[in-house]
Simulated scan of single mutants.
Amino acid sequence: MDLRVQGAGPTSPFLGARDLFETEHDLSLPVHVHLRDDPDERTWAGHYDDRHVLNISKQAASSAMARELALHEFSHMARYEQAHPSHTQSTEEVLYLGLAGKSVERRKLSHCYQIANHMKDIYADDITLTVGPGEKLLSFLESSLAMAVADRPETPSRSGLTRRSASADPDITAVNAAFALALAERHDLVEDDHRLYDLAYAAAMDAPSVDFEGFKRRFRELVANPDSSTYRQMLVDATRAYVDDGGATGE
Rank of each mutant, 00 (worst) to 15 (best):
residue 191 E to D: 15
residue 33 V to C: 08
residue 195 R to I: 14
residue 73 E to N: 03
residue 139 S to G: 14
residue 191 E to M: 10
residue 129 L to K: 02
residue 186 R to Q: 07
residue 101 G to P: 01
residue 75 S to A: 15
residue 30 P to S: 04
residue 225 N to I: 03
residue 184 A to I: 07
residue 202 A to T: 07
residue 111 H to E: 10
residue 12 S to T: 15
residue 221 E to D: 15
residue 183 L to A: 09
residue 202 A to V: 01
residue 96 Y to T: 14
residue 241 A to W: 00
residue 61 A to R: 05
residue 86 S to F: 00
residue 8 A to K: 11
residue 145 L to T: 07
residue 65 M to Y: 11
residue 215 F to A: 03
residue 248 A to H: 02
residue 30 P to W: 00
residue 200 A to Q: 00
residue 130 T to F: 02
residue 4 R to H: 12
residue 64 A to S: 15
residue 197 Y to W: 05
residue 251 E to H: 12
residue 79 R to D: 04
residue 22 E to M: 13
residue 10 P to G: 06
residue 150 A to H: 08
residue 122 I to T: 04
residue 134 G to N: 06
residue 148 A to D: 10
residue 19 D to F: 02
residue 228 S to G: 13
residue 56 I to P: 00
residue 88 T to A: 03
residue 77 M to E: 05
residue 216 K to W: 03
residue 43 T to C: 11
residue 64 A to G: 15
residue 123 Y to A: 03
residue 3 L to C: 04
residue 121 D to G: 01
residue 75 S to W: 04
residue 157 S to L: 15
residue 181 L to C: 03
residue 193 D to K: 05
residue 39 P to S: 06
residue 240 R to A: 07
residue 66 A to F: 06
residue 161 L to C: 07
residue 57 S to T: 06
residue 54 L to M: 11
residue 46 G to V: 10
residue 110 S to K: 09
residue 229 S to C: 06
residue 77 M to A: 14
residue 104 V to I: 13
residue 74 F to S: 08
residue 133 P to Q: 09
residue 45 A to Y: 02
residue 247 G to M: 06
residue 206 D to G: 09
residue 201 Y to F: 11
residue 21 F to K: 04
residue 243 V to P: 00
residue 247 G to P: 01
residue 30 P to Q: 05
residue 19 D to K: 11
residue 238 A to P: 03
residue 103 S to L: 15
residue 147 M to L: 14
residue 228 S to V: 12
residue 120 K to H: 05
residue 101 G to T: 06
residue 201 Y to T: 05
residue 133 P to H: 08
residue 154 E to A: 14
residue 241 A to D: 14
residue 94 V to W: 03
residue 116 A to Y: 01
residue 179 F to S: 04
residue 142 E to D: 11
residue 195 R to E: 15
residue 204 A to S: 07
residue 54 L to E: 06
residue 160 G to M: 05
residue 30 P to M: 07
residue 219 F to V: 07
residue 205 M to T: 13
residue 98 G to Y: 01
residue 50 D to N: 12
residue 235 L to P: 02
residue 208 P to L: 06
residue 89 Q to R: 10
residue 83 A to E: 09
residue 232 R to Q: 10
residue 156 P to C: 08
residue 138 L to R: 06
residue 106 R to Y: 10
residue 55 N to R: 10
residue 210 V to K: 00
residue 32 H to T: 13
residue 40 D to Q: 11
residue 216 K to N: 09
residue 80 Y to L: 13
residue 82 Q to Y: 04
residue 107 R to P: 01
residue 128 T to A: 11
residue 141 L to C: 09
residue 111 H to T: 07
residue 142 E to F: 01
residue 169 D to Y: 07
residue 235 L to V: 07
residue 23 T to W: 01
residue 99 L to A: 11
residue 117 N to M: 11
residue 234 M to W: 02
residue 124 A to W: 02
residue 131 V to A: 13
residue 185 E to P: 01
residue 82 Q to S: 10
residue 232 R to Y: 01
residue 81 E to G: 05
residue 197 Y to D: 01
residue 86 S to N: 02
residue 110 S to G: 10
residue 61 A to I: 09
residue 30 P to F: 04
residue 76 H to Y: 03
